[in-house]
Amino acid sequence: MGELIGMGLYTPAEAGRLLRVPSSKIGRWLRGHAVKGKFYPPLWVPEVDLGEDRLFLGFRDLMEVRVVDAFIRAGVPAIRVRSAIEIARGVIERDHPLSTDQFRTDGREIFLRIVDTDEHGEERERLLNLFRRQYEFKGIIDPILKTVDFADNGDPLKWWPAGRRANVVVDPTRSFGQPIDADSSVPTTVLAAAAEQEGIAGAALAFDVTESSIRRAVEFEKSFAQRMAA
């Protein structure tokens, strides 16, 4: 399991719970599927391969699925998302291009953010329409980027699934990418279960965390349980 350190590890069911995306849909996207006799290959190759006939996702896969789902929810046809991945993979030379911080959508088209330097040495940011292959003026902001920390090269590092104020983070370098209390690194599932058994104060004492951390973990787990039941 040493090769998985820093990558995160999720089953389709675990990924679906975090992302609110049906695990069956995640399976179709990453295994490929047939429609009316035509086979559509996987959107990309998952970064986790345990040598079994089981599907696992890494953190980059999790972030890629999140963006694919956001695009489709915004009204972008699935076939266009597939094309965007293929085009972007060639443009920025990344296996998981959609999970970088370079993408935007207005619900119809998908744009790739390009930063270049003009003849005066000044940087300019433009949006390349991946289908018309022409530059658009900047003005499309994808809100899902606000909850992700990115590296200087644009790769995703951490995800704050309930927003930064909740202080719950998904970090592939800690607890195999499970949601954790950002201050203590204890999984939210563990803190919430302890609160149910020992109460807020007892759980805080047992894990040497603040009562606020326990409350946030309980709220986080409760919100996901409610979403899954909806």
Rank of each mutant, 00 (worst) to 15 (best):
G2H: 14
Y10R: 01
T11K: 01
G16Q: 10
L19Y: 08
V21H: 04
S23R: 09
G27D: 06
W29A: 00
L30E: 02
R31M: 12
G32C: 13
H33S: 11
A34V: 14
Y40R: 14
P41K: 05
P41G: 02
L43V: 00
V45K: 10
P46V: 05
E52P: 00
E52I: 10
L57D: 01
M63F: 08
M63V: 08
E64V: 05
V67F: 06
V67S: 03
F71Q: 03
R80D: 10
V81F: 04
R82E: 03
I85Y: 01
G90W: 10
R94I: 04
R94Y: 04
D95L: 15
D101I: 10
Q102K: 09
R104N: 09
E109S: 05
V115L: 11
D118C: 09
E123T: 11
L127Q: 01
R133A: 13
Q134M: 12
Q134C: 10
Y135S: 08
F137N: 14
P143V: 05
K146L: 14
V148E: 06
N153T: 13
D155N: 13
K158E: 03
W159E: 00
W159S: 02
W160H: 11
D171A: 07
D171S: 08
R174H: 12
F176E: 03
P179D: 03
D181A: 00
A182D: 03
D183N: 15
S185L: 14
T188C: 13
L191D: 01
A193I: 03
E198G: 06
A201N: 13
G202A: 11
L205G: 03
L205K: 13
A206H: 06
D208R: 15
V209G: 07
V209L: 11
S213H: 02
I214H: 00
A217G: 04
E219S: 12
E221G: 04
K222Q: 14
K222M: 13
